Computed example of a mutant assay.
Amino acid sequence: MDRLYLLLSFDCDTDLDPAAALDLEPLLKEHGIQATFAVPGAQLLKAAPTYRGLAERGAHFLNHGGLPHAEFRDGRWWGCTFYARMPEEEVMADIRDGHRIVQEVTGQTPRGYRTAHFGGFQAPEQLALVHGTLAQLGYAFSSSTLPAQALLHGPWYDAAGILEIPTFGTWAAPDTLLDSWSHLTDRHNYALGDSFYDLFAETVDQLLGAGAHGILNYYVDPAHVAGQAPFQRALEHATRRGLASIGFNDVLRLAGRPV
Rank of each mutant, 00 (worst) to 15 (best):
Q103G: 12
G58H: 01
G53D: 12
A35D: 07
T109F: 12
H60P: 04
Y113W: 08
P40S: 08
F72M: 01
G98Y: 02
E88C: 12
L22A: 10
P87I: 07
A19D: 15
D94F: 06
R111C: 14
A21W: 13
A84F: 06
A55M: 10
Y51F: 01
A21N: 13
G119W: 06
R52T: 05
L22G: 11
H117V: 00
A20G: 13
R85E: 04
F61D: 04
C80F: 09
I101T: 05
E90I: 14
V91C: 07
T81D: 09
H64Q: 06
P49G: 11
F82A: 00
F72T: 00
G32V: 12
A48T: 08
Q103P: 01
M92Q: 15
F61N: 02
V39S: 05
H99I: 02
A84V: 06
Y113M: 04
E104I: 00
E56L: 13
D23C: 13
L27W: 05
A59E: 04
T106H: 04
W77R: 05
R57W: 13
F61V: 10
E104H: 04
G58R: 04
Q43K: 14
R96D: 09
I95Y: 10
E25V: 15
A38K: 03
L22Y: 12
T50V: 11
T109W: 12
T115W: 06
G41W: 07
H69L: 00
L28D: 09
E104R: 02
V39Y: 11
L27A: 04
E25S: 08
T50E: 13
A42T: 02
G107P: 06
C80I: 13
F37H: 06
A38L: 02
F118I: 11
G66V: 05
A48I: 07
F72V: 00
G112A: 04
R57P: 10
L22T: 13
E71Q: 11
G79F: 00
Q108I: 11
P26E: 09
A47N: 11
Y51S: 02
Y113A: 07
I33W: 11
G32N: 10
P87H: 01
A59R: 08
C80P: 08
G112S: 07
P26V: 00
E71G: 08
E90T: 14
T36L: 00
E88G: 14
R96N: 05
N63Y: 01
V91A: 04
K29E: 10
W78V: 05
I95P: 10
R114S: 10
R114V: 08
R114N: 10
A38E: 03
N63A: 00
Y51H: 08
V105E: 07
D74W: 03
R73Q: 04
H31W: 01
T36I: 00
L28I: 01
T81Q: 11
